[in-house]
Design a protein around this nucleic acid. Structure first.
Lengths: 144, 144
DNA sequence: ACAATTCCGACTTTATTAATATGAATTGTA
DNA sequence: TACAATTCATATTAATAAAGTCGGAATTGT
């Protein structure tokens, strides 16, 4: 039931883009330094986000990435699903659920459905903007 | 975010013991046949359940396993945690949470905590007895 | 005695995770 | 225009975990 580094890093990456947004592209090198994540690994991850149209990339010197939309328009669910794949605890209750031949008599599936719903409700409610707000609170706490 | 076969099989195994309980020990062979799971693999899984005191074993011919307590006394959470380990989506919000050095400034941890709470609330509420009930409903549906 | 079972530990195979490595393509700046 | 800083693309590797399989010892009812 773990979320892998891919998903976790993707979330931190997107949050970093939101928090440090100045209108100028932000380079992966900066993000990697701030987040203490291998730059090369981040390349792979942001490539997914880029292909999905979540970020805009600027190539060449002084290049980098920026969020394409407002932070409020990204839910945690969107980001995690893109990088982790379906968040369903078993494949038979996922978005494109893979039926199994025991479906008829299977009772455990009700458990998985409930877990799935509970998780989705959380991740689809929280946006990047929420997280930026939390970050701000923290910053305030420690600076006072 | 997947639950592995270990946990899924353990749940089906326990449910099988609850549903087919007659007071006599039930052999793994029977369970394996009914649940379509490798008997050898089930041995490993039930060994965990046995050591944890969830089931009672009877060795030798006509031997097998029985639930030690009433189905209502087993939650899904108990069974999954035993076989899957902590259900927390990341280790820093689990029961014996492993701190990381970024804890102070980390904001994503709030997301993981909410997911963790949501999942626990579901699995700690559902008991084996609930599932036996569901199974009964299904049986009724299809027999009418 | 024997067959059916649980019990135990080692082994194997496959898939996934988490990167690293190499280098090409692009572009602002000196 | 050269160059350095970047993104982009693909291949490779190393470590770990998942999902079993295998062989046989120990126990016990018939």
């Amino acid at each position: 039931m773990k979320i892998s580094t891919r998903g976790r890093y993707a979330l931190r990456l997107m949050l970093d883009l939101a928090v440090y947004n100045t209108g100028e592209p932000i380079s992966l090198k900066d993000i990697a330094r701030r987040q203490q994540i291998s730059e090369k690994y981040l390349e792979q991850i942001i490539s997914l986000l880029n292909k999905a149209g979540f970020v805009r990339s600027v190539r060449g010197a002084q290049g980098g990435y920026m969020l394409k939309r407002d932070p409020a328009e990204y839910t945690v669910g969107m980001i995690l699903r893109l990088t982790e794949g379906d968040l369903a605890p078993v494949s038979c209750v996922g978005a494109e659920s893979v039926m199994c031949e025991r479906m008829q008599e299977c009772v455990t599936v009700r458990v998985w459905k409930q877990i799935n719903d509970a998780v989705n409700q959380v991740v689809d409610r929280i946006t990047l903007a929420d997280m930026v707000g939390w970050q701000q609170e923290k910053a305030d706490q420690y600076s006072i």
